[in-house]
Design a protein around this nucleic acid. Structure first.
Length: 478
DNA sequence: ATGTTC
């Protein structure tokens, strides 16, 4: 992709017109400033967005967030909505880690009161939360119980003593998406998933101890229980081997039946099936099962984090602020060209960002809008925002999900020494517990874009409104 | 992201 093929709409919005490639059914709308746009041109992410514009049944535009980077077929930081009657669903548009997502918990514990215990607390957290590739989780279940997890999500955690009612109320969709079907889940996925409930994983998954460094919207922050100077904890994890297997299964299955539906695509990694087909419906049901698995996984981990926190800091409670998905396909109603349309919103590396008053939001967030959690790269700030009416109109109620890579994992490992990085972070007052120094190197801050600039773009285009900024004190990596 | 090359 070349900058010359991109039309500037304003400082923070750009468009790739349908005329750029013959297969484009809708334009690509990029929410970014010029500097971030040029960063996006360094990899194949915008070519992938142009390819994604070929998916049958698309409505509106393919949306690209400022933190966009290259993914499997479809860019990470991409949003695409397909008509439920005429459109398709594409596993590549959702991602291998189905319902990869973030949870934020907050406390009234002042940072100063926590500092002397912080390293011990972090070590205990590391012991309490299994992490790393292939690790088993806090809970290991039989297939019969796994089925309940897939159908009930965090509701299973509540019934089994791993959640409070408040956790459920303050999770996207109450931590459970309807329409999951166990029959659509393969034996292999079931086997991989049975042992991993309550495990962090590896890569960019983390647990981070932060403090609230700044508040931009006092009223919204108060509703979320975020107080300047207090400790908050973020958790980033997904559906582990289970969701990965579900995605693998359906990418293969869709490829095998692609010819049947006469869908021409510029990249086979975008393989898809009509939402209104046997295969499409089966994937939607299996994806929902994996989404519920991930909700339950984060909930079980969060419960262990809370217990560790409350043991370490008696008298202080760690309450849930919000838990959200950023790799998922959701059937939603949006206004497009003055009409109300039922669509499947593919969010891949993008969070939902519903505006105040949306009926899907919990009572306590009706007035301020949905909390939007945007973690920065390791050692940098994270941001808490709220969803807006602009997001509803421009991006199917979506916002960016993080900083976004600028270096590939391979490149980062080449350029960064993990041990040295750990020392550098320690010198800045950030304590790191990592299972693998090589894994740590992959997540070096310089492998990512500048989170503050991502947020500036989001503010500029109005997809979210800043509420608070968090600064890290300790981080756990797999 | 991932029993990191079914």
């Amino acid at each position: 992709m070349d900058l010359k093929q991109i039309e500037k709409i304003n400082t923070y919005e750009w468009e790739i017109s349908r005329s750029v490639q013959p297969w484009m059914r809708v334009p690509v709308r990029i929410f970014s400033d010029e500097i971030m746009l040029k960063a996006a041109l360094q990899d194949r992410s915008l070519d992938q967005a142009v390819n994604a514009a070929s998916l049958p049944g698309l409505v509106g535009s393919v949306c690209v967030m400022p933190d966009v980077h290259q993914g499997y077929g479809f860019p990470i930081g991409g949003v695409a909505a397909t008509d439920v009657q005429e459109g398709v669903i594409s596993p590549g548009g959702i991602g291998y880690d189905i319902n990869c997502g973030v949870r934020l918990m907050a406390s009234d514990l002042p940072r100063q009161a926590a500092e002397h215990l912080l390293e011990d607390f972090t070590r205990l957290l590391y012991q309490a939360c299994p992490s790393g590739v292939g690790e088993k989780g806090i809970v290991q279940v039989q297939a019969k119980e796994l089925r309940r997890i897939c159908e009930q999500g965090s509701g299973w955690a509540l019934k089994n003593g791993f959640a409070d009612r408040e956790d459920i109320e303050t999770s996207e969709d109450g931590g459970c998406i309807a329409g999951a079907d166990w029959a659509a889940v393969s034996r292999r996925a079931s086997e991989r998933g049975a042992e991993q409930i309550g495990s962090l994983g590896s890569g960019n998954h983390f647990i981070e101890v932060d403090y609230v460094e700044q508040v931009f919207d006092e009223q919204a922050a108060a509703v979320m229980g975020l107080h300047k100077g207090s400790i908050a904890i973020q958790l980033h994890s997904g559906s582990r081997g289970f969701g990965h297997q579900v995605c693998t299964d359906f990418v293969h299955q869709f490829q095998a039946v692609a010819a049947k539906y006469h869908i021409q695509l510029p990249d086979r990694e975008l393989v898809c099936a009509p939402l209104n087909s046997t295969e499409g419906r089966a994937y939607l049901s299996a994806m929902r099962a994996a989404a519920n698995y991930a909700f339950c996984n984060r909930q079980v981990l969060a419960y262990a984090v809370r217990q560790t926190f409350e043991d370490c800091f008696p008298g202080y409670h760690l309450r849930n602020v919000y838990d959200l998905a950023h790799n998922i396909g959701k059937i939603e109603t949006h206004r497009i060209g003055g009409q109300s349309v039922r669509v499947c919103v593919h969010r891949k590396g993008a969070t939902r960002a519903f505006a105040p008053g949306h009926p899907d939001l919990p009572q306590q967030y009706q007035k301020i809008g949905q909390p939007v959690l945007v973690p920065g790269s390791m050692g940098t700030s994270s941001w808490v925002l709220v969803g807006t009416e602009s997001a509803m109109l421009k991006s199917f109620g979506s916002c960016s999900h993080g900083a976004g890579r600028v270096l590939s994992r391979t490149q980062a490992k080449k350029e960064v020494n993990g041990g040295q990085l750990r020392e550098e972070l320690a010198a800045r007052g950030i304590f790191v517990q990592a299972g693998s120094l090589r894994g740590l190197a992959e997540e070096a801050p310089r492998a990512y874009k500048n989170i503050d600039r991502v947020i500036e773009c989001i503010e500029g285009t109005g997809l979210g409104r800043s509420v608070a900024r968090l600064v890290p004190l300790a981080v756990i990596k797999g």
